[in-house]
Design a protein around this nucleic acid. Sequence first.
DNA 1: AATATAGTTCAACATACGTTGAATTATATT
DNA 2: AATATAATTCAACGTATGTTGAACTATATT
Lengths: 124, 124
Amino acid sequence: MLNYIPNGSKSVPVNLELLTERLKVLAEPKRLLIFNLLMEGVQCNCELGDSLQMPPNLISHHLSKLRAVGLVDVERDAVDSRWVYYSVNRAALDELNAAFGAFFDPNRIQPRRPNCGPQSLICP
Amino acid sequence: MLNYIPNGSKSVPVNLELLTERLKVLAEPKRLLIFNLLMEGVQCNCELGDSLQMPPNLISHHLSKLRAVGLVDVERDAVDSRWVYYSVNRAALDELNAAFGAFFDPNRIQPRRPNCGPQSLICP
DNA sequence: AATATAGTTCAACATACGTTGAATTATATT
DNA sequence: AATATAATTCAACGTATGTTGAACTATATT
């Protein structure tokens, strides 16, 4: 019902859709650099643009993708609302680490159980 | 020399190029499903195609991308070399987990140190 | 020798996506 | 009121990439 993979889906330990979605957003060189700066606490658009030598509209674009998957939060400055501050969403980061760790856990690796090939008698 | 990011690069704890490269390969729904089956020990092309209901040439294509970044190994059957068996490269998986864990470590999150905005006196 | 099988490679297509420059919004300053 | 500033949105472009069907390679079987 969740998906129609005959064999594989039964033991998938995580929400694969969410994991793929977030990995896709992170798997981009400049976005990963932006995220890295956010991990260090740097936050406003202009700072990111200066540090990474990227135009502000590109920063905006990449940040909107990071926001779309919940990895980054936004807050406007209380004194001068022209400034917006970006930060890593801690809960999403924890979720990401948990999902990634569960999926890529080396202990999940199983030895080959041949259902096919000349050393098997099941498959044609 | 390594790269020309003025501020951000100094404390990046991992090889960002390799991490991005591998995440890019994994951040694709069907490839993640293939990799999931390989974690479970299923290995030959035909099995993957049957389980995921995908044509063998597509399986080949995705597996070649997983191989290209070292995450998957290939071995031909000793008895009948028409069959090829795919497996997760344990060393690469460990590397991936180490890099991911180091980069997305929640302890890396720092509070904002304003270099910009109205609450700062440095930046215009 | 001829046929079948497992898998790969190739060419072509459609779509997704990062990048760019200009226009736009919203707030603050003069 | 007019100008400046921080950021976003929009339209357009070029490239990258997943998908498909057919051709091809290599090995095994009859």
